[in-house]
């Protein structure tokens, strides 16, 4: 593994941390020794394909799932032994639509939820409800997927939790509601110092939010780094001679090989200028060196060979 792809954030206060977290469901391995560190104040985007272990990771932090091995902690509190204290500090947006109490009105559900959080801010909840255009008189069970999602967001945000866990938060939201969600979350973060851990496989929908990235593959983090470091992940488009073997001589770690024939598009880890020079030295004619978007970076890291 490229060392620089895995930051341990040891110099920063930690909001959530897992150590050697393992979970198996029958023969399937959901988490395989997960070592994740979410720095305090970060918006940490945990990405990975379906089944990579994202939801299980969030559930481990909430102590909803019993782990086979390893530990998880939130603000230094062990999630199993101090589960109630940990959950009091968390606002949670679950991925599931299977939410209980469909018979209650939205107002009644929010009132019930508020009972559990002494820090619940009633006026803020009302403000959020207005911003999300929530009708409190509606029966919760009768809401559409997107409407229910908005109610869940209010439930997660209104007690201004120090840690916000969001599992596929934009799932079910139409494009307009997604924009509203992003604006609302940005406003919330401006008002309230919060650490956010977002799990998603739709990175493009939260492109502007994340400042830390964790890439989860087969139950393990293959990368964990600040977003600004992703600037070192560049794609080089170049033309190479027939039978080019210069790739093996490149002094830069190759994350992903792409392209066709003599037109190559390789993603490498390094400064743009250094990458350009390295390819030129190896006999390629460099056409373009470009930084990757968050989504492109994620794809590249997910496709990275194990040996890297």
């Amino acid at each position: 593994m490229i060392e620089e792809l895995f930051q341990r954030f040891e110099d920063r206060p930690v909001a959530a941390r897992t150590r050697g977290l393992c979970k198996r469901f029958g023969t399937q391995t959901a988490l395989d020794g997960l070592e994740m560190t979410v720095p305090e104040g970060a918006v940490y985007v945990l990405v990975g394909p379906n089944g990579a272990g994202k939801t299980t990771t969030l559930r481990a932090l909430l102590d909803l799932t019993v782990m086979d091995d390893g530990t998880a902690e939130v603000f230094g509190l062990p999630c199993v032994e101090r589960g109630a204290d940990v959950r009091a500090r968390i606002g949670f947006v679950p991925d599931s639509q299977d939410f209980p109490y469909g018979g209650l009105s939205v107002d009644a559900l929010l009132a019930h939820h508020a009972t559990y959080y002494p820090a619940w801010d009633e006026s803020y909840a009302g403000e959020l409800g207005r911003q999300m255009a929530i009708d409190g008189r509606q029966r919760y069970g009768g809401l559409s997927k997107g409407e229910a999602r908005r109610v869940q967001l209010v439930m997660a945000l209104a007690h201004r939790p120090p840690l916000l866990l969001m599992d596929e938060p934009t799932d079910g939201l139409d494009p307009l509601a997604q924009d509203r969600f992003q604006a609302l979350l940005a406003d919330h973060l401006a008002d309230t110092p919060t650490t956010v851990l977002i799990s998603t496989h739709r990175v493009h929908e939260i492109e502007g939010l994340g400042d830390c990235l964790g890439v989860l593959r087969d139950g393990r983090l293959v990368a964990q780094l600040e977003r600004q470091r992703l600037e070192r992940l560049v794609r080089v488009r170049a033309e190479v001679p027939e039978g080019w073997a210069g790739g093996a001589l490149l002094p830069l770690p190759v994350i992903r090989r792409g392209g066709r024939g003599r037109e190559i598009a390789w993603t490498v880890w390094g400064e743009s200028a250094a990458a350009s020079a390295a390819f030129a030295d190896a006999g390629a004619t460099v056409r373009q060196v470009e930084r990757l978007t968050l989504e492109e970076s994620t794809r590249a890291l997910l496709a990275m060979p194990e040996a890297s």
Binding site: G76, R89, L104, S105, T115, Y117, P118, A119, R139, H159
Partner: peptide
């Protein structure tokens, strides 16, 4: 742990009991 986090504590058990009773009785019994 910051002072801000200390207000984020578990609820009093009495509140939870009252919430459970309200939930069971339901505002709209089926």
């Amino acid at each position: 742990m910051s002072a801000r986090q200390t207000i984020h504590r578990p609820p009093a058990l009495g509140s939870v009991v009252r919430a459970q009773l309200r939930l069971i009785l339901g505002r709209r019994p089926r």
